[in-house]
Design a protein around this nucleic acid. Structure first.
Length: 300
DNA sequence: CGAGGGTCGGCGGTTACATCA
DNA sequence: TATGATGTAACCGCCGACCCT
């Protein structure tokens, strides 16, 4: 009686185009809109994290000196005891009693006032399933109920009180049940997205590692060639580099056959390139200052 | 106008139960 | 039939936003 994952809209796809600038994750829902209003994540601040909302939250919190709650260090004195779970609303544990009596929120008052008495009989004959000892059978939503909830979730992954009441009435559920279902559904979506993000970053890391390995090998080969003058004096350089005579910017032309100068100063039209100076990277007379690999690629 | 308290909704984390292999 | 794995309904505690006094 369980709804298929595809029906739940949890089938997040992951694609890895060669062109990284176009990498996009096909997200079922916009997590940015579902994130807590208390998390002031500014997507423009870390633009490349647009594709990773969950990671973006992580990095943003880290940047602010906050850690996500998952990583939060809880002081020993404040650490929550492993308390009883699902039925605590009905059989409150000692710890819950200790910590919640001082602040009876509206949420809790709603649960206690309407959750047990007035709403109990409204759906699926829950009261009929009460055991003699007070424990309650767990409700499983019907296929139709799940489908309607899914449809509603696709439209908006949060509900205002009016929508919640209407949906609960339509489904024959308690408003609290609809609210819980949406909370759990958002959590599932976020978890799924986090898994996708992690998988994506893992593959990115693998690709970069492979590329780094390839480049290191290329550097070794080039250095070996440089140590063999009988070779490089006869060889044509694979690429013709050009250097701007005024700023000494070195660039690679769009295509090796094109003789057009590299226009790396396009934003500054006043800058004139009278004549590009070709640079033969292996020519011994060209005084190319040696720079370590890390200096050329500071991020590697 | 700012401080303090109450309410509300969302989230992270957890538990318990139903279902399946 | 027993059992471990998995999915999920339901819960608690916390936090930030909002409102009122």
């Amino acid at each position: 009686m369980m709804v298929e994952k595809e029906d739940l809209g949890l089938s997040l796809s992951l694609s890895f185009p060669e062109n990284r600038s176009s990498m996009q994750l096909n997200r079922t829902t916009s997590l940015a809109s579902s994130s807590s209003p208390s998390a002031p994540f500014n997507p423009q601040k870390i633009s490349w994290l647009d594709n990773f909302p969950s990671l973006g939250t992580f990095f943003f919190l880290s940047e602010l000196g906050h850690m996500p709650r998952r990583c939060e260090a809880v002081p020993e004195g404040n650490r929550r005891e492993p308390s009883g779970g699902g039925r605590r609303g009905r059989c409150r544990s000692f710890v819950a009693e200790q910590h919640t009596l001082s602040s009876v929120s509206g949420k809790r008052s709603e649960r206690e006032a309407t959750g047990d008495e007035t709403e109990r009989a409204s759906s699926h004959g829950i009261s009929d399933e009460e055991d003699a000892d007070g424990s309650r059978k767990k409700l499983r939503l019907s296929k139709d109920q799940s489908a309607i909830l899914e449809e509603s979730f696709k439209e908006h992954n949060t509900l205002n009180p009016k929508q919640k009441l209407a949906l609960a009435k339509r489904l024959g559920l308690r408003p609290r049940q609809v609210e819980v279902w949406f909370q759990n559904r958002r959590a599932r979506t976020k978890l799924k997205q986090t898994e996708v993000d992690c998988e994506f970053l893992k593959r990115c890391c693998e690709n970069l590692t492979e590329e780094n390995r390839r480049l290191q090998k290329e550097v070794q080969e080039l250095r070996a060639l440089k140590l063999s003058p009988q070779f490089y004096m006869q060889m044509t350089p694979p690429t013709t580099l050009t250097m701007c005579p005024s700023c000494e910017h070195v660039g690679v032309p769009p295509s090796s056959s094109s003789s057009a100068p590299v226009d790396h100063h396009r934003p500054r039209p006043h800058h004139i390139h009278p004549r590009p100076i070709p640079i033969h990277p292996w020519a011994p007379t060209t005084p190319v200052p040696h720079r370590p690999f890390n200096a050329l690629h500071p991020r590697s």
